[in-house]
Design a protein around this nucleic acid. Structure first.
Lengths: 201, 201
DNA sequence: TATCTAATTAGATTATAATCTAATTAGATA
DNA sequence: TATCTAATTAGATTATAATCTAATTAGATA
């Protein structure tokens, strides 16, 4: 369950103008100027909102002469809404894994918490990559949040995911492999289950 | 489902700190200071987020001595998430009610679509004002798009708005009043919410 | 090539909201 | 009553994002 996906989805739906755009697109595809007139805002504002909606993957476009028609990306919309529902249902059932560490000793837990608090800003950005192995691994493990075991990822998807934490995706992606958090086959990345992670030594 | 409920729900879920709070509360009820420590933010920031979550109806509280325990309001959470999913599914099925008309029959929706397609050009201009009451009202209601309930408008603003659809703003503005879509007080115009619109007869 | 159209970008303004520190409040308890 | 604790409020700072105007761009077409 990707925290970031959920947040982006909800950000996209948390503005009345965007909701109204989606509602209009639900009836039929529309081009920017039509949307602008309908909603009483300028075309450049439409462009702004469309960029947000596109970032969240909620719309697609089709060009026809000079006109670009926007329409709903129905699959993504439904998948994300369903994901939110599942997230909540899991929470309600107490199955939610907040930080993903299972069965970890208490003192180690505390150390982890301390390290994460030091290296991440409150809104979840990595301030810097720790040098010490142990700390570095705590930080790497935190950045696995949002990736799913058993799903295949393109290199670019991994990069984008890492960039939500820190711009140096190349280093971090390499570390993911080194420590056995992920493996790569033919450009396709997959997350390893915890029992395949390399042991500290 | 009111537009505003949806937006408040998504606003509540569009901040990483609040999502993390909800995830922690999903495990077990927590008090403010515990949440603050866990997330590395100050208690006053927790208070701030709790107020947001309470506004959205997503949490409840229980006092025990000096300590206030927060927990999930599971019913609301699930209901709102489900409502969003329904909102989208309806959109996808073309049953979307754009402007808050609830319980409208499907055939009426279809008729409305047909009328609007006939009387408006693809880029949203009104070709002519329909003579039949029912059709005329469909068309008038469409031209309310872009106006906001609860905002005050000068007569000139209304005129300009109407002119984006059709040059005869005087007739159309008058019809807005007649049918209860708007009311005028002292030269100031305000849009009525749908429940104040005159019924067809 | 010149011109038209729809869209986008750049840059500014403004509104909203996340966060903090310092002060205050509401209850509990000695 | 005096004091302690957890929470809240007030007020400031800062970041984010919604919106606009003016300028620019990308394609289409004459």
């Amino acid at each position: 369950m990707q925290l970031n996906r959920i947040i982006n989805f909800h950000k996209a739906l948390s503005d009345p103008t965007r909701i109204r755009i989606l509602a209009l697109l639900a009836k039929e595809p529309q081009h920017g100027q039509a949307l602008a007139e309908r909603l009483g805002i300028t075309p450049s504002t439409i462009t702004h909102h469309m960029a947000r909606l596109r970032d969240a993957g909620l719309i697609k476009t089709r060009r026809e002469k000079n006109t670009i028609y926007f329409s709903l990306e129905e699959m993504t919309l439904q998948r994300d809404a369903q994901a939110t529902l599942n997230f909540i249902l899991e929470s309600v059932n107490g199955l939610m894994k907040t930080e993903g560490e299972e069965g970890m000793s208490n003192s180690r837990e505390k150390e982890r918490d301390r390290v994460l608090r030091n290296f991440f800003t409150p809104d979840g950005k990595l301030k810097q990559i720790p040098v010490q192995c142990k700390k570095r691994r705590f930080v790497l493990e935190r950045m696995l949040d949002g990736l799913t075991v058993g799903r295949k990822y393109l290199e670019n998807e991994i990069n984008e995911h890492i960039k939500t934490f820190h711009p140096d995706y190349a280093t971090i992606r390499r570390e993911f492999i080194i420590w056995g958090y992920m493996y790569r086959d033919n450009g396709i990345y997959e997350m390893n289950p915890p029992e395949l992670w390399k042991r500290e030594d």
